[in-house]
């Protein structure tokens, strides 16, 4: 597995000297007796688009939830931009991270959720501008201006004063993306963002992700069941199975040329 990581790094990132923006080092995660991740080693590079695929329960969502500090790894380290996420140094010893430390390190990470998780008591505009004002201490006018621009970009410039329950699922998810993007993250996490949508609404959401991906500078990690989309947008596809990386590489290699039997089965179920 270590070999395959090295291989994929060199195959995807032309300049080997680029430092990864996220490093998972021997990360284990258990929920009760169930071990979901069994020693994950994974590097993500600045600007890289990574698609995580795999059967349910394979740990793909857990990977990004740990990075967003929504789940704590059972063991192992996650390094974000050179800083240890879940541990901090105190008197020369590594101790569990405090809330303050977590906030410092996760500031460059944004996330979009399967169920949108918009704030129902705020308008669309308030949803977007609250965090820049409260967290980044941006002044209200400029946060408002940027939020409006972002909402226009995702095609919702005419819904600023609407509440989330007045929108369709696809619109809600686009607001959620605008809300995350206004924070200008270096890493964006997408947790099955189209799974809760009616089929006819999936397209509009994928289109926004496609646009974001084209801009390039942000690293993106997508947990997805949209194989064709992964093929199109991702620089690297990672197939997780039973808590380990079972296959990874360029999308075309993984999705079309791999001989991994489990992957074949998994893809077969999706394409049939």
């Amino acid at each position: 597995m270590v070999e395959s990581v090295k291989e994929s790094n060199s195959s995807n990132i032309s300049n080997k000297n680029i430092k990864p923006i996220v490093e998972y080092k021997k990360v284990h995660k258990s929920f009760g007796d169930v071990e979901v991740l069994k020693g994950l080693d994974l590097n993500i590079f600045p600007g890289e688009k990574v698609a995580l695929i795999g059967p349910s329960g394979s740990g793909k969502t857990t990977i990004i939830r740990m990075l967003m500090t929504l789940e704590q790894p059972t063991s192992g380290e996650i390094i974000v931009d050179g800083k240890n996420l879940w541990h901090m140094e105190k008197n020369g010893k590594l101790v569990p991270a405090s809330e303050k430390h977590l906030r410092e390190v996760r500031g460059d990470i944004g996330m979009v959720f399967q169920h949108f998780n918009l704030f129902p008591h705020m308008t669309i505009l308030q949803n977007c501008m609250t965090a820049p004002v409260q967290v980044q201490k941006e002044d209200k006018e400029s946060a408002k201006k940027r939020s409006i621009e972002m909402l226009e970009k995702v095609g919702l410039g005419d819904k600023l004063d609407n509440y989330p329950n007045q929108l369709s699922g696809g619109q809600k998810q686009r607001v959620a993306m605008a809300r995350a993007l206004v924070m200008r993250p270096k890493i964006m996490l997408f947790d099955e963002v189209t799974s809760a949508l009616d089929p006819e609404l999936v397209g509009e959401v994928l289109e926004v992700i496609r646009d974001i991906a084209k801009e390039g500078e942000m690293a993106m990690v997508l947990v997805t069941h949209e194989m064709d989309f992964a093929l199109e947008v991702a620089d690297r596809v990672i197939f997780l199975d039973d808590g380990v990386i079972a296959e990874e590489g360029k999308p075309s290699e993984v999705l079309e040329e791999s001989n991994n039997e489990r992957l074949q089965q998994f893809l077969y179920r999706f394409r049939s």
Binding site: G107, G110, F113
Partner: peptide, 11 residues
């Protein structure tokens, strides 16, 4: 999910 979204926004 509301707490999770607020954490993701670093509140």
């Amino acid at each position: 999910g509301q707490t999770e979204a607020s954490i993701a926004l670093n509140l």
